[in-house]
Design a protein around this nucleic acid. Sequence first.
DNA 1: TCGACCTGTGAAAATCCTGTGAAAGCAGGC
DNA 2: GCCTGCTTTCACAGGATTTTCACAGGTCGA
Lengths: 259, 259
Amino acid sequence: MNQQQTIRLAVIDDDSGFVTVLAKRTEAAGWQQRTSSGAIPPEELVAMKLNALLVDPTVLGEDAWLYLERVCGMLPDLGVVVCTERSTVAQRVRGLRLGIDDWITKPCHPEEAIARLEAVSRRRRRARPRVEAGPVVAGELEIRADRFQAFVGEVSLDLTRREFELLQLLADSQGQVLEREGIYQRVWGYAMAHGDRSVDVFIRKLRQKLEKLSPGWSYIHTHFGVGYRFDPESLDSKQPLHSSFTSPTQARNKLSLSR
Amino acid sequence: MNQQQTIRLAVIDDDSGFVTVLAKRTEAAGWQQRTSSGAIPPEELVAMKLNALLVDPTVLGEDAWLYLERVCGMLPDLGVVVCTERSTVAQRVRGLRLGIDDWITKPCHPEEAIARLEAVSRRRRRARPRVEAGPVVAGELEIRADRFQAFVGEVSLDLTRREFELLQLLADSQGQVLEREGIYQRVWGYAMAHGDRSVDVFIRKLRQKLEKLSPGWSYIHTHFGVGYRFDPESLDSKQPLHSSFTSPTQARNKLSLSR
DNA sequence: TCGACCTGTGAAAATCCTGTGAAAGCAGGC
DNA sequence: GCCTGCTTTCACAGGATTTTCACAGGTCGA
């Protein structure tokens, strides 16, 4: 394993002794940390782009469970570790089921806390060794990550940031069907609220821009009840019905429509 | 969302009491479990396609660390939980750094062990929604999970989401008879109402689509009063035009008929 | 062989899902 | 503050999918 990128951690605890020692060590390890002695609104946590959260629910008061549930629901990728003084098996089980990743008991050795925070954040790292290589080409499209833009020939699609990120995600998983939740989670960075149509709307925008500069190609396919799949497909085969040869991909797509 | 996929767990421990209780509970939860009282070679673990591994390093003897390191290195997607009697902070930290996901202390409540196993598999699963293994092949069928679709040759069956999930479930339990209640529970995610015929209806749809693209094969078999069993069976006892060899599965089916 | 149960079927009815246009909400620059 | 471009939210229309029903045909045990 190579060196992990710095971890962004938030600590919600009012045990100043513990917090201080912890801060010292995490800083030494190069982590970025923010400490709070009270709940941090979930929206703010989202904005902080955290990797891990360490929290002592006793400082949350009554609504601790509710709070933890909301946080875990909203940030499924966030590593959440609870660290508290006394707890019953039932509480721990409830917490873990809720989405908490680890539950440790005070007093605990800061080194162990750190090791556990690292363990819960580890998943992130495996994410994607994005190919540094050249631009991605798909159909008539050329996606240049370095410019945050896609081109057809030398003409830019004029994508906004979100549009670009969405397109990039889709193109990176070319051929695979991606579900809306997953897309949202990866592009927006937090869980999609039930009933949110943002993904659909952005797909439409992408399609419009793609159609405008590259008619004759179909890039994004809808899979009803599931999500979308990116797969450049040339439409121009003059007579679809009689064409005597088609690439395997085309053939497959023709017959399967975009289900 | 619907049901969490069943978790495949392996337990390496010789504390028969603990193991037994655990097995009882995981079975009730629908997990697939295998228990061993000694180390399981990493290669074998890979083949088992596990989600989680619970291990007491004391049964591993001298080479415990080495073993754990190899397992964690080889199976980055596997959730590994150590459960042992005594341990020092240093050991735990070493283990967690090594790639272990959680370290709990015996005696521990089985419910908590399960909750923690769930938590680590949840995390691991999210980390890589990747194309688990290649496509599943059965008879002339090819089931591609990454496309939410099944194919015969390059032609899609055009399955809807439910149809696909049903087919996938059946195929995953190839050879086993599944009861309607169980099927419903796993595909729909909640209990089947008395008298609900949905499963039957979807089985019919699947059969129709299968028949259309792969006549000459029989995939889904009815077990009167029980449920359905998926087992590809070539109907034409003559020599199939395209295959001159029979898989063990096929051979077995020929002899056992469908009930 | 006869009834009591199950399962297969076709089709109507009820739901759910996606595409779309447009308005409302926001954030940054002038 | 005002403008401008981007994002989010809404409501509706048209389809696709799922559920539900009623009935026909099969299977099993007595």
